[in-house]
Design a protein around this nucleic acid. Structure first.
Lengths: 235, 235
DNA sequence: TATACTATTAACTGATCAGTTAATTAAGCC
DNA sequence: GGCTTAATTAACTGATCAGTTAATAGTATA
């Protein structure tokens, strides 16, 4: 036959199936709510295999978290160099990975007495991000004197909140937070907001004089079907 | 004896004890994670009384949510009239009520197939808030053209995120999000941010010229032990 | 003080769930 | 083809949990 022979028994394949199913289950229901039987069913694998491959529910969960966090770390590297672009990037990068956001959310609300998983990696992630902000500040893209820690917390807030509280978006906005129209509108709003925060006061009116109404942001036009700015275009 | 006679039997008292215990338990563990036995133990009441008074776990939960949301609605009324002040107010008002934030968070992450509880009340809450923003915009405190829905989502994001993801604050900042020092610093930062967003570009440099470094916000001094501005001082 | 009703209790039940036992089947190797 | 080891399975177990049963103790009232 063409292609590699599909062996009836294949532990690696089984492991991968379990990991995929576990990510979905833990993301949907959290550690306490996730059912080992449900993971096994999703993976089309006998429940015993979870214990054979990963030991216990806890160990499987830890593995899922560790992988997700490592995967996320790569995104930090590709952050644009301007502040407004970086804000939109965090939003769009985080906004595509609902499993990541939900896992973090479950960790936040229901740590269940577990000690923080991959704490060192997370801290490194944050410190790297704040360091980047420090560079932007030195280059003048962020006003001097701004507390960068608070600023970073704010960037995360603005970027993650829609996925963290989707029902708020539904209620206020009538759309799913993953709806492309909502995401474009939000990304444009964040670019406008970042632009306004990033510019030093002197430069704001100068740049804006090109328009008749200097304070009209572009994101309001999105719902009417106009084109929006792509990532990087503003950078 | 002085004071009201403590009757051995008092259904109202029992109800109140159950409600208080249930709020604590549901806030801490969510609907699925909350244990009926734990609520009874906390309330120092026989488990059977929960069913006697409220029917089922679901009904008790609904009652808790309904009460909390009604209680929150009152806070909207006392929102300051300027944008920066309103932003800080949402933060400080939400920041004092961790049970409210956690209940909303549990609802968001684990609705468990339940239909949205008190949806009409919540929507009314949001619409009232956006209406207030519209007034501020007409009065010039918010730039024309800004999408008020996105702006309101952003205000909620900035205000609620620290309590929603306390471990992020711990990791980035090394403090609990409820630590008074953190809260003051954040409130000052939000006032600076709101000020900067709210002002039209033309007015920003004029107002700022009073300082030598017009873009230095006050909140950065907090951690170094200097005095900080009290709520309202910057408004 | 007998009666009727309300509030409270301990003990039970059936379902669900993480984890285990022990048997079975396929693959690798001589 | 027989032997060994690795992968897979069904059935079981003990703990936990929401909800129930049925009996009991306090309170009001006639």
């Amino acid at each position: 036959m063409a292609g590699p022979r599909t062996t009836v028994r294949n532990l690696n394949r089984t492991r991968e199936k379990i990991l995929a199913a576990a990510l979905a289950e833990f993301s949907a229901r959290g550690f306490a709510g996730a059912r080992v039987d449900a993971i096994a069913r999703r993976a089309r694998v006998n429940k015993r295999m979870l214990y054979y491959c990963f030991g216990a529910k806890q160990d499987l969960y830890r593995e899922i978290l560790r992988r997700k966090i490592a995967e996320r770390a790569e995104f930090i590297e590709s952050t644009p160099d301007d502040f407004a672009g970086a804000l939109a990037h965090i939003y769009l990068a985080g906004g595509t990975d609902i499993d990541f956001v939900r896992l973090m959310e479950w960790e936040a609300i229901d740590s269940g007495g577990r000690k923080c998983i991959a704490e060192a990696e997370r801290r490194a992630l944050f410190e790297k991000a704040v360091d980047r902000l420090r560079v932007l500040q030195r280059e003048g893209s962020i006003p001097r004197g701004v507390n960068l820690t608070q600023l970073f917390i704010s960037m995360l807030s603005l970027a993650l909140f829609p996925l963290v509280m989707p029902q708020v978006i539904r209620l206020i906005h009538g759309m799913e937070p993953t709806d492309p129209r909502f995401m474009r509108q939000r990304a444009n709003f964040l670019r406008w907001l970042g632009d306004r925060l990033g510019k030093t006061p002197e430069t704001v009116p100068i740049r804006s004089r090109r328009r008749r109404n200097p304070t009209t942001p572009s994101h309001t036009a999105v719902r009417r079907g106009r084109s929006f700015k792509r990532p990087g275009q503003l950078a």
